[in-house]
Design a protein around this nucleic acid. Structure first.
Lengths: 339, 339
DNA sequence: TTGTAGGCGTTATCAC
DNA sequence: GTGATAACGCCTACAA
């Protein structure tokens, strides 16, 4: 049914070894041009394709790179994925994309799965939570993977002894808080995402700290927790609206959350920014189509994917390598000067 | 370095065969519970993971499914990908995502690549063009793939003798044209995407035909061609604006194009819908965050991915199976009643 | 139920 | 430069 290299060798009248070398161009050995042409012609005639699995076994390594995301339909991840795809392609690797659907346990399973496939590298792009047990499992799974020759990189928190692209959320959130305070905002609410989500926590805590430093009003219940999704933003905003007097500005720890909040306000007839100002985090590409244009903190998402890929593929060093990425406040139309 | 099944067998004091059966649960043979426990314990102790490549070779099939897209960062494709990921997961398959970056030739290469990997199934989700040579190559590549036991499905045009999910673009475009005419629009322009892109062509021709049937004004140069991207929409709209009197309504053959057009108009100070009405096609999830809300023709994208996966994995029949999907006009705020 | 042995398609190590 | 042949890690008749 399937044409194998032996078939090609027989058809070309050469040995299996020669056929292999002709088609694959061995490292040291070289094949005479006449035989090589005969082999290539035979391969073409028989419509032969090498079996990547067999090659993987014989060579002891594959050519695929695994990318773990929380949700591929989320522009945050699909943008990172585009970066990874680009870098992987440049490195001659195929990308295997696995989605954990926001389930940390599933993420661990997926690392194991990728290890079974003997993927050349694994990139974990979704943020971690403060669940110690799960983090240990993930750390262990990655350690096993690396112990057997796998290369790994994370995007997010460097808590696992693996090469990591660390995004400086606190810096961006701090700058954002100050900029908003400078614009005259004093009463805030925060759509904080999941309580245990580390990046979300970093963003909201830095934001809150910077505000309090300025003496702004930020009661403890100013933060509403919820899912790291559009729906989570809608729901959080509805909670805020039901509560009574609206804040002057709502800081959502992620753009998708901010967009959900804006949708909820639209439905409720609340105007942005006239009635409430809004700021997000990440600067997903979607924002270019949103009006009023959303103020946010820019993370270079696509570059994140590229960097993580490079980091994963880099020569393994003693110490896990950490690459830090700065964030940048981008002020747009949802946060005009207030007074 | 890597722990193999033989190691586990030795550690457990059983034969290779028994270890294999214990860990994998063979079809017919069953393993005594005592031995099984011993094997499982040994595997755990040694942190053994089966080698998927070796299994693939021995079994003659893999557990991965390839998805081809034009651009993973495009919400159209990432939504389809989410559907495929979900269905693939339900079928116990891993998804390998490959992006052709809108290059049809690359798409053909990727099919070959996936064939090398012996992927269990391939789904080609990007629309085809009218390039006969490329289409032949793709057809041939898929035929080769299927001849060696691969399962394939397309989303788009059924021109390749493969199971296909066919979207009825013409129907949606026709209904849209009529609905817009009913609302009083008479002067139109079309942002038509790439000239040779089949889905785009279907949409714009059906739209134009339905309009002319109603006697609406649609000069030949009413259609501006361009890339199937946001940037393509911006550029097309700029061309339209430079041309002189604006049409009453701009029909973009894809939402991303429409969004690009709206961005260009925003920059130019042209108001939607007061100055120009806009309609798109696809109903990508992004639209929920766009204001004014974009009128469009809904394609059930996520379901498309699920259906294509099912179609690919379905029992191979005599005839290639065609599943037709209807589209539905969704009128929103960018196209109010005109007169 | 358990073990033995051959085979899956390539690559790589040796001789020649 | 070319050709046998032994791995690679696992599965699965077949035999016991």
């Amino acid at each position: 049914m399937t044409v194998t290299l032996s078939d090609v060798a027989r058809e070309a009248g050469v040995s299996l070894a020669t056929a292999s070398r002709a088609i694959n161009g061995s490292a040291s050995r070289t094949v005479g041009s006449e035989l090589r042409d005969r082999v290539l012609a035979a391969a073409l005639r028989l419509r032969y394709t090498p079996d990547a699995n067999a090659q993987a076994m014989a060579r002891g390594r594959t050519t695929s790179l695994g990318l773990l995301v929380h949700d591929i339909a989320d522009p945050y991840f699909s943008t990172i994925a585009a970066g990874v795809a680009q870098a992987a392609d440049a490195a001659g690797l195929q990308m295997t994309l696995a989605s954990s659907q926001h389930d940390p346990a599933r993420e661990v399973d997926l690392v194991h799965l990728l290890r079974r496939q003997r993927a050349r590298a694994i990139i974990v792009s979704g943020g971690r939570t403060d669940d110690v047990a799960i983090n240990d499992q993930l750390r262990l799974a990655l350690a096993d993977y690396r112990a057997t020759g796998g290369a790994a990189a994370l995007i997010g928190q460097p808590i696992l002894g693996v090469n990591t692209v660390v995004v400086n959320h606190a810096q961006g959130a701090t700058q954002l808080a100050r900029a908003m305070h400078d614009r005259g905002y004093r009463r805030f609410a925060i759509l904080g995402g999941p309580e245990g989500h580390l990046s979300a926590r970093e963003r909201r805590e830095a934001f809150a700290f910077a505000l309090r430093e300025r003496g702004a009003d930020l009661p403890d219940d100013a933060t509403v927790f919820g899912e790291f999704t559009h729906a989570g933003g809608e729901e959080g905003m509805r909670t805020l609206m039901a509560r009574g007097p609206l804040p002057e500005l709502v800081f959502a720890v992620a753009d998708v959350i901010a967009l959900g909040a804006m949708a909820a306000m639209r439905d409720a007839g609340i105007r942005v920014p006239q009635d409430v100002a809004v700021a997000g985090f990440s600067d997903i590409p979607t924002l270019r189509d949103v009006t009023p244009a959303l103020t946010t903190v820019r993370i270079p998402l696509r570059e994140l994917g590229v960097m993580a890929t490079e980091l994963a593929l880099a020569e393994p060093a003693e110490e896990p390598e950490i690459r830090r990425v700065l964030t940048e406040v981008v002020i747009r139309d949802t946060t005009p000067h207030l007074r």
